[in-house]
Simulated scan of single mutants.
Amino acid sequence: MRIPQSPRLRDRLDDATGPLLMAGAANALTARVVEEQGFEAVYVSGAGISNTYLAAPDIGLLTLTELSSHVAAMAEAVSIPVVVDADTGFGNAINVRRTVMQLERAGASAIQLEDQVSPKRCGHFNGKDVIEADEMVGKIAAAVEARSHDDLLIIARTDAAAVHGLDEALKRVTLYREAGADVLFVEAPRSQEEMQRITTEVPGIHLANMVEGGKTPILGRGELGRLGFSIVLYANSAMRASVVAMRTVLQHLRDAGDTNGVQSLMLSWADRQALVGKDEYDALERRYAVNREGL
């Protein structure tokens, strides 16, 4: 039961303390763990929600209503900025206006939009395509105009490198920056040399997406900072780790008939209740309890 008090994400990106390391979450509980572990922002992963909520791949199946409900729950659960993956914006520029307004009301501190053809695909899948650059420029202009406050950042992602090459991707993010995007995101560069070109050839705030097993080399936060990236994203590391732990515990339970050998891998009862704020709810119950003796 928290009231969100997100600091301005723009202020954090303007300081000189090194790249913002951002972890992704697919639900409010994971978002709270991200905050608990000291991260300065949490990323609402569209792929993570698709995987966990729908048990489906990241191929554009999630709706705006489903995404908004997850964003609202996460924003209420944490006090750090919530950065939202809004895929293609759920339609054309007019749809993007509604998407931005709805997600901002839900508690987003930043909204990421990408230039893929809808339905989109994960940035590290094959078979992607992108819309025309001028259509995406219109979407970004609509997003900038739709936000109610400049504190809401617009992150412009291009997937053009996989389709048309890095030169086209760099041309696009330059146009997107001119259209008003606050943060630039070239998805799936294939080498450190390509990553260096992104930050050298296009001025602005750049995001690096680290996907274990994906097309981009995994580099350390310090090295990415030296390359010129201001944000380092690990969108689904926590979700993927949780599945490994679930499988280990469930396999043991299936084979042994109990959890006695794997409880060290499980959240303790007390820690679980603390994480979800059980004491706070107990206090509220006492505060609002009816004193029937005086009736």
Rank of each mutant, 00 (worst) to 15 (best):
E145N: 10
M195R: 14
R177A: 15
L184W: 06
D151P: 06
I205H: 03
L184M: 05
R105P: 00
L184H: 05
A160E: 10
L153H: 07
A146R: 03
G107F: 02
A146G: 03
I155Q: 03
V186I: 13
E193S: 15
A142N: 07
D150K: 12
I131G: 00
K139N: 01
I140D: 00
K120N: 00
E145A: 13
G204E: 11
I111D: 07
G123I: 03
S148N: 12
P189R: 10
G180H: 11
L224M: 04
E145G: 08
T174F: 10
Q102L: 10
P217H: 05
E223R: 04
L153R: 02
E223S: 08
M195H: 13
S118F: 11
A110D: 05
P217C: 10
E194D: 15
R177V: 12
G225Q: 05
E178P: 06
K139F: 00
I154D: 10
R221D: 15
A179R: 04
E178C: 06
E135M: 03
D167K: 07
A181N: 14
L166H: 09
H124N: 06
G220K: 07
L170S: 12
A110L: 09
H164K: 15
D150A: 13
A110G: 08
G107W: 01
V117K: 02
A106M: 01
R190E: 15
G127Q: 00
I154Y: 00
V183E: 15
L153P: 10
T158N: 11
V137Q: 02
V202W: 08
S191T: 10
P217Y: 02
D151H: 12
V163D: 01
A142F: 06
K120M: 04
K128H: 04
M195I: 13
M210F: 13
D129I: 04
Q102R: 07
G213S: 08
E114G: 00
V163H: 08
T199K: 10
T216F: 03
I155Y: 03
T199M: 11
A208T: 05
E145H: 12
M210V: 14
E212N: 09
F125Q: 05
L170R: 13
Q192I: 15
D115L: 00
V163L: 07
R121H: 02
K120F: 04
E114K: 00
I198D: 08
G213M: 10
E178V: 11
Q112W: 03
T216P: 04
A133G: 02
T200W: 02
